[in-house]
Design a protein around this nucleic acid. Structure first.
Lengths: 215, 215
DNA sequence: TAAAGACAGTACCGTACGGTACGGTACGCC
DNA sequence: GGCGTACCGTACCGTACGGTACTGTCTTTA
């Protein structure tokens, strides 16, 4: 019943040059405002580079997609969470912060576009885009949040056996049906205020479920 | 912040003939064991019919996909829920039943394949497959579960203001990260026992959050 | 039995797209 | 200056696939 987290991702090939980053940004821009299908031609045109260069740098279409996903992922992992000396207020703060930024991510056009492409590619069973997106999305945040939960437990604020299970519940409370609806094209527009209140609700519900009973 | 449930789906075109059903089943089988891409040729070959017939019956590729999704949906809506005279036991029973069958659906190869195709198609912005999948999946179950929740409230068992919001929380507690992980190709195999225990956990958590405080 | 459909099978058409080849230009380096 | 390298732009190739047309066969109806 536990996960098999796919193949561990290759240890991050070296960073793209500035020019390559510009190309990847063009690819990203293309998939985000999606009017046009993501063809090699379209990327080359948008990035003002030749297709030949694209193939030289990234090998093939899949390589370009992979590099694009990695490039986007490399910009997201920003916030770090402080887990020492956790009191009830700091715990709530941390969880709230996480929930809010996670909601902002999954609601972003970039995330929706990226996930759509990765899912489509996964369906046609070539490339490991899905694995990469999972590793940098769902699993990455899991690894960042679980220490917070464990610190909360250490501080006697939370009670649970399995931090992975606790995190998955939190994940469900935060995301609910939002991601699948967006992926399927529902218009559901969550503005910043909506995200904040949604995050707050999720955190309160999570705390209600996992708060350590007063001794 | 609320949803815009896409365009209401056309009032279900007339039921397909047995032969047409066989064709749709072939399409379904093709997308489920996915070794092959879902081309018109492949469907025709698998269904032992001519492409011309396919186009005559379904108009174009999109029509075929749409009919396939509708056909699958028409077989899923089975269980009906009894909402009169709801006591605590019956409420838990109902919720458990729903959670279990919903988990079984989203874990099925059919659902994963169908959602992948709908999401891919939504990405390339033609067809309303995503809307149809949403209408028959997420929204359909919402409409079936909310009466149960409301009956629970009427019976003084549950407390909430907005049944839609309550349902979305339930949805999140049941599904958590399962659907997105499957769509992205994670192997996560949930057997019947795993589904049962997962469903039970979700129901207990939901009741813990929404149970009416004893007066 | 003749005429009319419905349909399988297959050949075919047009186009989109992944991938390659090649000419042309700018910039280093000897 | 000559030469190599890196790159853009574009033309090109092969193939896959959506969609159409045609032929032959079987079934139905009169």
């Amino acid at each position: 019943m536990r996960a098999s987290p796919l193949k561990a991702e290759a240890p991050t090939t070296e960073a793209p040059s500035p020019r390559q980053q510009a190309v990847l940004d063009a690819a990203l821009a293309l998939m985000v405002d999606g009017g046009e299908p993501l063809t090699m031609d379209a990327v080359a045109r948008r990035a003002s580079c030749s297709k030949e260069t694209l193939y030289k740098w990234f090998g093939d279409r899949d390589g370009l997609l992979t590099a694009t996903v990695r490039w986007q992922a490399s910009r997201v992992h920003a916030g770090r969470y402080e887990v020492s000396d956790l009191d009830a207020v700091a715990l709530r703060e941390n969880l709230l912060d996480f929930a809010e930024s996670w909601l902002a991510v999954i609601c972003s056009r970039t995330s929706v576009a990226l996930n759509r492409i990765a899912i489509a590619e996964t369906g046609s069973r070539k490339s490991n885009l899905g694995g990469i997106v999972l590793a940098n999305g769902r699993f990455a945040i899991g690894e960042r949040v679980k220490p917070v939960l464990e610190a909360g437990r250490m501080a006697g604020l939370l009670a649970f056996d399995d931090s992975e299970a606790a995190f998955r519940t939190f994940f469900g409370l935060v995301g609910r049906d939002i991601q699948i609806r967006l992926l399927l094209g529902d218009a559901l527009d969550l503005d910043a205020a909506g995200i904040r209140s949604d995050a707050a609700r999720a955190v309160e519900q999570f705390l209600a479920l996992y708060r350590q009973a007063k001794p």
